[in-house]
C-alpha cells in the first residue's frame, strides 16, 4: 500500500446525506471478481444525470469528495471503496461515516476524515465558489486547508499510523501467529466446526 502523508487536489461537493453503498456502487457491478475497474459504476444511477456534480465540467479530475453526513451506510461491499479509488478519489470528508465503510477505507488506503458539519458547509461553499480551489489534506497534522480556510479532521490513531507507513494489516497480524496458536489451544471443545 502506498504511504499517505498529505494529498493536494481539487474537491467535489456532494450535498446529500445518507449516501449508501448501493448508490456508491450499484449491486450489478458487484458481480465482477477483479479488484479494479469499478470507476464506471461509481454513483452509477446519479451519473446518468448531467447535472450530477461529478458530471459538471468544473469538477473533472477531482480527488477529494466532500460529502454529507452518514456517508457509506448499508452494505459492507468494499467495492464502494474501490470504485471511489478507481475514479481517482484519495480522500472523503464527512461529518459522519458508516462504520463498515470507514473500516474498509482504512484497509485500502482511502482516507476518510471526520470533519465538523459546520466546516463541511464552509468547504462546500468554498469549492462551489471556486471549483479549481486547491485543497490539501494533511494526515500528519490532521488538517484540511483550502484557500484561507483551515479545518481539522479526526482519524483513528492506528489507522493514521498504518496509512502513513503504508502498512498491510494482514502482514502485521501474521507476525503474531504464535500468539494465535496459543489462543487456539484454549478454545472450548464444544464450539462447532463446519467440516
Amino acid at each position: 500500500m502506498e504511504k499517505f502523508i498529505t494529498h493536494t487536489g481539487t474537491a467535489a461537493p456532494l450535498r446529500r446525506s445518507n449516501v449508501d453503498t448501493d448508490q456508491i456502487i450499484p449491486a450489478e457491478y458487484l458481480k465482477r471478481i477483479t479488484r479494479h475497474g469499478f470507476e464506471d459504476g461509481l454513483f452509477g444511477a446519479w451519473r446518468k444525470d448531467s447535472d450530477f456534480v461529478l458530471n459538471q465540467p468544473a469538477y473533472q479530475g477531482v480527488s477529494i469528495l466532500i460529502a454529507g453526513p452518514d456517508f457509506g451506510t448499508g452494505s459492507s461491499r468494499e467495492h464502494a471503496v474501490w470504485a471511489l479509488q478507481d475514479f481517482g478519489f484519495k480522500v472523503v470528508l464527512s461529518s459522519r461515516f458508516a462504520d463498515i465503510f470507514r473500516g474498509n477505507s482504512g484497509k485500502g488506503g482511502l482516507l476518510t476524515g471526520l470533519v465538523d458539519q459546520a466546516d463541511i458547509e464552509l468547504l462546500w461553499a468554498a469549492v462551489e465558489a471556486n471549483p479549481a480551489l486547491e485543497v490539501t489534506v494533511d494526515l500528519d497534522k490532521r488538517e484540511v486547508r483550502a484557500g484561507d480556510l483551515t479545518a481539522t479532521f479526526e482519524v483513528d490513531d492506528y489507522v493514521r499510523w498504518r496509512l502513513m507507513e503504508g502498512l498491510d494489516d494482514i502482514g502485521i497480524t501474521m507476525k503474531h501467529g504464535d500468539v494465535i496458536a496459543e489462543f487456539e489451544v484454549k478454545r472450548p471443545a464444544f464450539m462447532p466446526t463446519t467440516a
Binding site: S76, R77, E78, H79, V81, I100, G103, N104, K107, G108, D156, Y158, D169, I170, I172, T173, M174, G177, I180, E184
Partner: peptide
C-alpha cells in the same frame, strides 16, 4: 456477529483473527 469488507475477509481467511477497536 458483524459484517466485514473484503480486505477483512482476506484477513480472517489468513489469520482467523481481526484487529478491532
Amino acid at each position: 456477529a458483524f459484517g466485514i469488507g473484503t480486505s477483512e475477509v482476506e484477513h480472517v481467511l489468513a489469520t482467523q483473527t481481526l484487529p478491532l477497536k
